[in-house]
């Protein structure tokens, strides 16, 4: 079943400082912070970014078990980078292990990717997943993000569960007729039928939903009900995040910590 553990009652309805922060502030800083971290390349700044993200996680009081599950998913491809990059990076070898040659720059690259991806993911969980998808959509609306993008997000969020249910029904329909997936043409054909039927049903549903919208006076414009207001805590949070990003940039562009030069 598709779940939303970070934004159901366990998380998005929490009471931490970040849960109470204006979602517009969180979206702005998450975007700026993600780009800033993605462009960092020196280890002092990358490690500092990881600490900033961990501090955000601490402020969000996130469920650590859910957090570990999310980090695991992201770190699976990162693990493959660790396997491949040191072996395939063309540079002077650091050491040889049998037929394999391990390069130093390859290890550095893999470490950078690990730090960046984890710092960004942790910040995302702390800043974005402490609001519900609906609240984020409305905040994006207030930030003048194109309406079509927002409603695509909200309608996707609404119907991804319905489509998943339909997929499960189709799978059960196949299962009750003794379908057992194997590595053969029959399995591939069956899955392609299931997928095709899912698209057909999704298209038919899209038409029915559009009809339902027309019946309620829809003329192509979406309206937003939510209103947000900035508090002193929001402004303080914004200043702290700005300060954290300035520190990261200072670490990136100056040679304060000579050891990492």
């Amino acid at each position: 079943m598709i779940g939303e553990p970070f934004s159901d009652k366990k998380s998005s309805a929490g009471t931490s400082l970040l849960h109470r922060t204006d979602p517009r502030i969180k979206i702005i800083f998450l975007t700026l912070y993600s780009f800033a971290v993605a462009m960092l390349s020196r280890f002092p700044s990358l490690i500092a970014a990881l600490f900033v993200s961990l501090a955000l996680i601490f402020l969000a009081r996130t469920n650590l078990r859910d957090l570990a599950a999310r980090l695991f998913v992201v770190n699976v491809p990162v693990f493959f980078f660790w396997l491949l990059l040191p072996l395939t990076f063309e540079a002077e070898p650091l050491f040889c292990a049998g037929p394999f040659t391990v390069s130093g720059p390859g290890i550095v690259y893999a470490a950078r990717i690990t730090l960046k991806s984890n710092a960004i993911l942790l910040a995302f969980i702390a800043l974005a997943a402490t609001s519900s998808v609906v609240t984020l959509g409305h905040a994006m609306n207030r930030l003048h993000v194109p309406e079509k993008i927002i409603h695509l997000l909200l309608l996707t969020y609404r119907y991804v569960f319905v489509i998943e249910q339909e997929y499960r029904k189709l799978r059960i329909a196949a299962k009750v007729r003794c379908f057992r997936p194997k590595t053969d043409m029959h399995t591939y054909r069956t899955y392609s039928y299931l997928l095709g039927m899912l698209f057909v049903r999704a298209a038919a549903r899209a038409e029915r939903v559009h009809h339902a919208m027309l019946c309620r006076g829809f003329k192509g414009k979406f309206y937003c009900l939510s209103e947000f207001s900035l508090t002193r805590a929001d402004i303080t949070g914004a200043l702290l995040m700005t300060g954290a990003m300035i520190v990261l940039e200072i670490l990136e562009w100056t040679e304060i910590i000579l050891f990492w030069k």
Binding site: R208, G217, F218
Partner: peptide, 24 residues
């Protein structure tokens, strides 16, 4: 509509019910 999932397309109940009046 026959199927309520076709009718309810907003993420929350309040937004869905308010959709028509906003369009009006």
């Amino acid at each position: 509509f026959q199927n309520a999932d076709d009718q309810l397309f907003s993420p929350t109940v309040l937004e869905d019910v308010a959709f028509g009046p906003l369009n009006l």
